[in-house]
Design a protein around this nucleic acid. Sequence first.
DNA 1: TATAACATGTAAGGTGTTACATGATTGA
DNA 2: TCAATCATGTAACACCTTACATGTTATA
Lengths: 176, 176
Amino acid sequence: MSLPHALLGLLALRPATGYELARMFDGDLGRYAWQAGHTSVYPELGKLAAQGLAEVTEEGARGAKTYALTEDGRAELRRWMLEPQRQGKVRNEGVLRLFLIAALPREDALAVLDRTAEEAERDLAELRQVRAEHPDDASMLGEQGIGQLAAEFGVRQYETVRDWARWAAERLRAEG
Amino acid sequence: MSLPHALLGLLALRPATGYELARMFDGDLGRYAWQAGHTSVYPELGKLAAQGLAEVTEEGARGAKTYALTEDGRAELRRWMLEPQRQGKVRNEGVLRLFLIAALPREDALAVLDRTAEEAERDLAELRQVRAEHPDDASMLGEQGIGQLAAEFGVRQYETVRDWARWAAERLRAEG
DNA sequence: TATAACATGTAAGGTGTTACATGATTGA
DNA sequence: TCAATCATGTAACACCTTACATGTTATA
């Protein structure tokens, strides 16, 4: 159950409304790390406020409530980030498919591997472009929910997947 | 909801009992791709059988039921593996932490990055050894729930994470 | 003979998703 | 004025985790 900590982390970057937070999960954050819909975000913000980890600092137009971290919230985030990494929960449908390629007949496996490499290549190009267009958002998760550290991580991930898929396809073809 | 397809994929490799399937999720499959407990696995096997995608082929000692894929099950697995990759669900606590490093003060961020690199290095060494000890389980998920394709994927993942963490730490130190 | 591993299940509670619902503001 | 975006929420259902519960077989 990492949603509260995800929210704490995002609020640590800057105060935000539930709507803004929910949108961040639609971007790269949700693509690589953690996803949540607005129907999870709003109740969770309420809980964080009730626990004193976040607070409403502003009520704007259209009923918008801006939340900010409290000192307790910042301390809890820090505690969670620094605590020893127990084996966390992993659910990744894409990686699951990669694992199950071994269960397919050769031709199908090759088709999936080729497609995987192509998709990684395409996503890589896209991400490189996004990064080039936003070179100055420092190490912050910016408008698009992307920061420089995270963007670099994404680039390397895609390269790894692409290269692995090519390697695996080559290996399968050589075996056959 | 990928659990049924995960089970279909595992059963495609070879028939297995619910107990064996549940154990596979404890291994590398659960570590990188998808995890599930036995309390999810047993009911799901029942559903797959009810849908005609799997069937009990053997009832052994200690009440063990061995399930195997039906033809329909194999077709459904193939359909799912080959269908265009809609953006699947991702939940990865480790990666979430990496994204949120940007929300920490410099010193804390460096501590997390250094620890991340060390852990990746350690896991990498361990995985390389496991792989070296099981060089012959071809492209199958073997005893340990690990196959050669998946093992290579894991190795590359760890290398990527380690190198990224080192790069990020260096960058932060240079900035400061 | 005791412990670990094998083997399956139920029940309660918590979490997450989908569908439904409402309304304000901005820009074309 | 119409559509898109902003902004929040509830309800029903599906799903997952934890704790509880039971019994068998192999091995030290």
